[in-house]
């Protein structure tokens, strides 16, 4: 069963009319950005770049971070995934003091436009992580590709796409992310500090993993190259192996 209210801001939950709010805001964002891009003179910067200078301080210009940093690149991630994360930070399902304070008083509509803006940015090629041990790489690759059926751990590809570049519109790619970020996020899920709307499938999976396995998976993922032209898959090859509240139908 999929929960429709997964991405909805709290104010929307009282009304059934709000069910398609996310879709509408994202569409509105796309339209707005599209028309702004057409209206802009050649060589004029997108005003969103300037509005979002606050984000660039950590996530880089146009959402691209490269190299040795904790902060993830957000350029080119699926729009609805980004929107869900912005709402989760604002509403306390993800914990980050600065992110929460930044987003506290931004409207659902603006968050949708921000998500759409970053989803449209090309991502950058990332240097691969070369600090993993052979054992970590073997464990990480096995869990990523095959999972562990005995412990009900599905392979990462089952949800994040065959090439691990994510699936439109709501599942993020796992390539091109800093190893520290990957490790911190999966660990936060294991400890309950990062949550998605119930049913929280990533929370279930992360709780089944050991700390060493999380480190191995993070190390293997960060060791994989990320081609600059890689894109999220457009659809899932098969139904999701778990119920995920953070993913709209």
């Amino acid at each position: 069963m999929l929960h429709h209210d997964a991405l909805l801001p709290s104010a929307c939950r009282v009304s059934m009319r709000c069910l398609s709010t996310v879709t509408r805001w994202l569409a509105a964002g796309l339209l707005l950005i599209g028309s702004a891009a057409r209206a802009a003179e050649p060589g004029t910067a997108d005003p969103m770049t300037e509005r979002l200078a606050a984000c660039a301080a950590c996530h880089g210009s146009e959402g691209r971070t490269v190299g040795d940093t904790y902060y993830p690149s957000i350029a080119g991630k699926p729009a609805r995934y980004l929107y869900a994360q912005l709402v989760n930070f604002r509403d306390g399902r993800r914990q980050h003091t600065i992110m929460a304070a930044m987003l506290a008083n931004l409207s659902d509509r603006y968050l949708g436009e921000i998500a759409t803006f970053y989803a449209r940015q090309p991502h950058a090629a990332q240097p691969v992580f070369d600090g993993a041990t052979a054992e970590q790489l073997a464990t990480g690759e096995r869990l990523t590709r095959q999972g562990d059926p005995a412990r009900k751990i599905p392979p990462c590809q089952a949800c994040h796409g065959e090439a691990l570049t994510g699936v439109e519109p709501a599942i993020p790619g796992l390539r091109g992310l800093p190893v520290r970020y990957l490790d911190a996020q999966i660990s936060a899920w294991k400890q309950g500090a990062r949550r998605a709307t119930a049913p929280d499938c990533m929370g279930q999976i992360a709780k089944a993993l050991t700390g060493a396995e999380i480190t191995a998976i993070s190390a293997w993922l960060a060791s994989q190259p990320y081609a600059p032209d890689a894109r999220p898959a457009t659809s899932l090859p098969a139904p999701l192996p778990l119920d995920c509240g953070g993913v709209l139908p």
Binding site: R51, L52, A53, A54, S107, Y110
Partner: peptide, 13 residues
């Protein structure tokens, strides 16, 4: 973000 200023400009940390 308000109706009169829907897309505010942010101050970086």
């Amino acid at each position: 973000s308000t109706e009169g200023n829907p897309q505010p400009y942010g101050m970086p940390p």
